[in-house]
Design a protein around this nucleic acid. Structure first.
Length: 278
DNA sequence: ATCCCGTCCTGGAGGC
DNA sequence: TGCCTCCAGGACGGGA
């Protein structure tokens, strides 16, 4: 499940495509391309130069010549991978991009087929609801913390649910949400509405810390995540709670618990993070 | 405005 | 060994 650190790692691993010109696009799974037909998508991309590869939350934004943006979201199992063109095409491949200057191909491979691709005029993201409503970048120095504390306080849902809301915490997903709550010593079921300014600052610092460390460790490979060159991440070895049900908390040795919050598996230390009361 | 739930989808795990 | 069921979950849309 790629989250912000994994998407950022993929972005960095594919920066060599900046300045290259797309020569050919093959869409093997038309449903992955939103708004446009496969044919129209391909024809609009062919002979178009990639200027920059950017990231917003969990979205990859390919800024193209002619003020066009190709927006890719990998959802659960999507992989953007650079392959030798001679390698047989995996049956889960949704799209293939070839380039004028390079041997090899960029392929979107996606077992569960949730990944999406949009091609829109630069800056016109209204049709991509999630991107249009995304919070500012959490790692940006000017993230408006007081404004988002106010937003958080209007919610009656548990903290864990709020952390997964991309309108509040762009790029946070299930793994980093649990890790951040552990570091901030906050219970996943605690009410977002009752979070003090001090608690919120501690949570924000913890979110930023886990995202930054996730990037430094090239992401978390829990299932099938790899970067654009096929490299696995390293942060799975540093997880404090996620996936550690029944194992000892690194701080107090209490067994880590797993509960379900907002339909998501949620791991926490019942001692370090307080009692799990609804 | 917020919240909860169903939906999309396939592979892997666990049960018998 | 093999079949069946269940689960994983990011984000969106609909209904409360």
């Amino acid at each position: 499940m790629p989250e912000l650190p994994e998407i950022e790692t993929i972005r960095r691993s594919l920066l060599f495509l900046e300045g290259k010109t797309i020569s050919r696009v093959e869409v093997l799974r038309p449903k992955s391309v939103r708004e446009l037909t496969a044919r129209e998508f391909a024809s609009r991309l062919e002979n178009r130069k990639i200027l920059t590869l950017e990231r917003r939350g969990k979205y990859l934004l390919w800024q193209l010549a002619g003020r066009q943006t190709m927006v890719v979201h990998l959802r659960m199992t999507g992989q953007l991978l650079w392959y030798p063109e001679t390698l047989p095409v995996d049956k889960h491949t949704a799209a293939i991009w070839s380039f004028q200057e390079l041997r090899g191909q960029l392929r979107l491979v996606d077992i569960r087929t949730f990944a999406t691709i949009n091609l829109v005029p630069q800056g016109e993201y209204q049709s991509i609801t999630g991107l249009a409503n995304l919070s500012p970048e959490l790692l940006a120095a000017d993230y408006p913390a007081p404004k988002f504390w106010q937003k958080l306080k209007r919610r009656r849902s548990p903290l864990k649910s709020a952390l997964l809301d991309q309108r509040l915490f762009a790029g946070v997903g299930n793994i980093y949400a649990d890790e951040a709550l552990f570091r901030a010593k906050l219970n996943p079921l605690a009410s977002a509405a009752e979070l003090s300014w001090q608690d919120y600052l501690r949570l924000l610092a913890a979110v930023r810390a886990v995202l930054t460390e996730g990037i430094e460790n090239h992401g978390t490979t829990f299932r099938n995540y790899v970067d654009g060159r096929g490299q696995k991440g390293g942060f799975q070895n540093k997880l404090a709670v996620y996936g550690r049900r029944g194992e000892a908390c690194h701080v107090c040795q209490t067994p880590i618990q797993r509960i379900v919050v907002a339909g998501r598996g949620t791991f926490f230390c019942p001692r370090c993070q307080g009692k799990a009361t609804a």
